[in-house]
């Protein structure tokens, strides 16, 4: 097995989280955007509240533009993609040029989407590239620990977002199960007690989403 520094362990974990954040928020945004076709207003205020981000947007159009594409908005999808890029670009020797290239392509696709008359289709190319990154990382990276750290980051982010959005408990249970099967293989430090608590919460008939969000955020210790 190769050697991985603490810093790169952190970067791999956050690469997993940010790619998932971009992927899932684009999908959610696309759903909400679709509802605008039939209804006048998108409930972006509620969306901001669920994601714990400030509602700085002036209108539906302002939200659609800034939340997707503004690099000045630190909560925008583009800002999160650049965080993924910032982590990936310093991991070339860990993840390989082939995997890294899909993050680079996602950035180019995001730039193009921001200028497009059909931004949703442009954003689809971003998610295509992120999906390709995950696939390539899974296929191309020799070191299982590296793959597992990225996946753990991805699963934690997914549970976090699903929980914030109050998604179907079955979806949460599936992701929690995947996380439990994966986390030891990644060798990252985490709280076993908190993982047990996460697993307990998702099994409840009436999932306490706020408590679950809080627990999943505290799961990985010493990885900020």
């Amino acid at each position: 097995m190769g050697i991985i520094s603490i810093e790169n362990t952190d970067r791999l974990f956050w690469l997993g989280r940010y790619t998932e954040r971009v992927y899932t928020t684009i999908k959610i945004f696309a759903d909400r955007f679709d509802s605008m076709i039939d209804f006048d207003e998108i409930e972006y205020g509620k969306f901001c509240e669920s994601q714990d981000i400030p509602n700085i947007y002036k209108s539906r159009e302002d939200f659609s533009q800034k939340y997707c594409f503004s690099l000045e908005d630190e909560n925008s999808i583009f800002s999160n993609l650049m965080r993924a890029y910032d982590n990936a670009i310093v991991l070339r020797e860990e993840i390989g040029s082939e995997s890294l290239s899909y993050i680079q392509l996602a950035v180019y696709a995001m730039n193009q989407a921001s200028l497009s008359n059909a931004p949703l289709l442009g954003l689809q190319k971003v998610t295509d590239n992120i999906a390709a990154f995950w696939g390539m990382a899974d296929d191309d990276i020799d070191e299982s620990q590296i793959r597992n750290i990225i996946k753990v980051g991805k699963l934690i982010e997914r549970i976090d977002i699903y929980s914030r959005l109050g998604k179907d408990p079955d979806m949460l249970r599936r992701e929690a199960r995947r996380l439990s099967n994966r986390i030891d293989k990644s060798q990252i430090r985490y709280s076993m007690k908190t993982l047990a608590h996460v697993n307990y919460l998702v099994q409840l008939d009436d999932v306490p989403y706020d408590t679950l969000t809080d627990a999943v955020e505290r799961l990985v210790v010493d990885t900020n």
Binding site: S5, V90, R92
Partner: peptide, 17 residues
């Protein structure tokens, strides 16, 4: 730096590591 690290199999490091 990063490309040569990948291709030579050397570890790319910063001073504090």
């Amino acid at each position: 730096h990063s490309y040569l690290a990948e291709k030579t199999g050397a570890h790319l490091v910063s001073g504090h590591e």
